[in-house]
Amino acid sequence: MPQFDITSFLPQLIWLGITFVVLYLLMWRVALPRITDVLETRSERIASDLDKAAELKAQADSVLTEYEAALAEARTRAKATLAEVTAAAAAAADARNVEVTDRLNKEAEAAAQRIAEAKTQAMAEVRDVAVELAQASVVKLIGREVAADQVAGAVDTAMKEAS
């Protein structure tokens, strides 16, 4: 086997030494730092992107909270306005109600008074007619006139009894 040819060992070992040391130095000083740099830059970039995303999310959250607060406030205000308007409308309706009731009552009273007056007047007229009628009837029955006062008294008595 050529592998056990001792004379070939020395040139192999010398060149192995040279090439491996050169490779080690190239890796250590040139190639690996570059890759490290690329990987670190990337991981830093990713971390900063994640940070930025978290920041933006926080911003969006705060905007959402603000929006919700504004919405809640607007809703409260609308409710208050609605209650106010409802109360005012109810008060106005009550006032109008009272006014109308008062007027109607007054009108009813006035009407009752007029009816009472008309009744009194009618009763007086009925009495006068009854008196005249009674006077006339007496003349016809007994042929002589009776004093008006007497007739009136009798009519009043009769009317009182009738009523």
């Binding site: 040139p11 192995l16 490779l23």
Partner: peptide
């Protein structure tokens, strides 16, 4: 000492260049 560049040494150099 025999420090001849052999086919072995040449492929070692090729490997170093290729890796780099």
């Amino acid at each position: 000492l025999d420090a001849s560049l052999t086919n072995s040494g040449a492929w070692m150099i090729a490997a170093v260049i290729a890796i780099t």
